[in-house]
């Protein structure tokens, strides 16, 4: 049982929670996630740890309402308890001084890319964030992103904020303009696929954080499996981050529809 300390709406469908979890707050690093279950009949669902405060013993989750399970979490209020929460799961992001790092986040992917942005910045990288959403309201966490980036480029599908266009256009501009040493991308699978195709063309090493369907999150079931470089890998224990250029995104996109309801 983990108590919700605060709840804030970042947009219509995106909620930011601060949750009591002292052990996780202490041991987590950028790139880690937790598995959450709400109610006795609830499903186990993964969410990235967007931030943590080891002193207060809390972690931050940013959750977008998609279907049944995310709705259940987002319906909880300050003072409520999350039935089960386990983590930190996955491998932490490999952080070092690469030089110039582009963080390409789309939609609710802006939240999980934030801790990576932060860690990359702390490691002395020049961080350029390219963040995309359908429309202005869906751009979340703008202040924190600005705090942790040397430059921020916003892209919206309808041009209501920043530049009009897709995330790939923004990333391509940067790559054409200057040398990029690493690209990190988090967002809908289809977006990551196109970012990966683009950076491959320019030979920019790219890491994608995959959001496959999971059950246990500890390597026990294989529900989260993806093909990377022709081999089966489990996102929960071997990932969630992989060399994007080797990920079979088409297979992943197909598998994400396995339980469409």
């Amino acid at each position: 049982m983990n108590k919700i300390v605060s709840k804030e709406y970042l947009s219509d469908k995106v909620v930011k929670f601060e949750v009591e979890a002292p052990l996780i707050a202490k041991s987590r690093r950028a790139g880690h996630f937790v598995i959450v279950r709400v109610g006795r009949k609830g499903e186990r669902v993964p969410y990235t740890i967007a931030d943590a405060d080891a002193k207060r013993g809390t972690i931050t989750l940013v959750i977008q309402t998609v279907g049944k399970s995310s709705q259940k979490v987002c319906a909880l209020n300050e003072g409520d308890y999350i039935t089960d929460m386990v983590g930190p799961l996955g491998r932490a992001t490999h952080i070092e001084k690469f030089g110039t790092v582009v963080c390409a986040g789309g939609g609710v992917g802006i939240a999980p890319i934030l801790p990576i942005m932060k860690a990359m910045k702390e490691a002395g990288n020049r961080v350029i964030s390219v963040l995309a959403a359908r429309t202005k309201e869906l751009i979340i966490l703008e202040d924190q992103v600005r705090e942790n980036s040397d430059e921020v480029i916003f892209m919206t599908d309808d041009g209501s904020y920043g530049e009009k266009g897709l995330i790939t256009a923004g990333v391509e501009n940067v790559i054409q303009r200057e040398k990029v040493d690493l690209c990190v991308t988090i967002g809908p699978a289809i977006m990551m696929k196109f970012v990966s195709q683009l950076t491959k063309k320019y030979d920019v090493p790219t890491v994608a954080s995959l959001n496959t369907i999971m059950v246990d999150g500890t390597g026990m079931c294989g529900a989260c499996r993806v093909t990377v470089g022709g081999q089966i890998r489990f996102v929960c224990v071997d990932g969630p981050e992989f060399n994007a250029h080797q990920v079979d995104f088409d297979e992943m996109l197909m598998r994400l529809k396995a339980y469409d309801r």
Partner: peptide
């Protein structure tokens, strides 16, 4: 990796641990 092919751990975990056969359960 086609849809509908899974490990027995996944299958049994869904049914036993997550009680997926119960219509009330959120786990499919």
């Amino acid at each position: 990796n086609l849809i509908g092919i899974m490990s027995c751990n996944e299958y049994l975990t869904r049914v036993n641990l997550m009680q997926a056969a119960d219509p009330e359960s959120d786990t499919p």
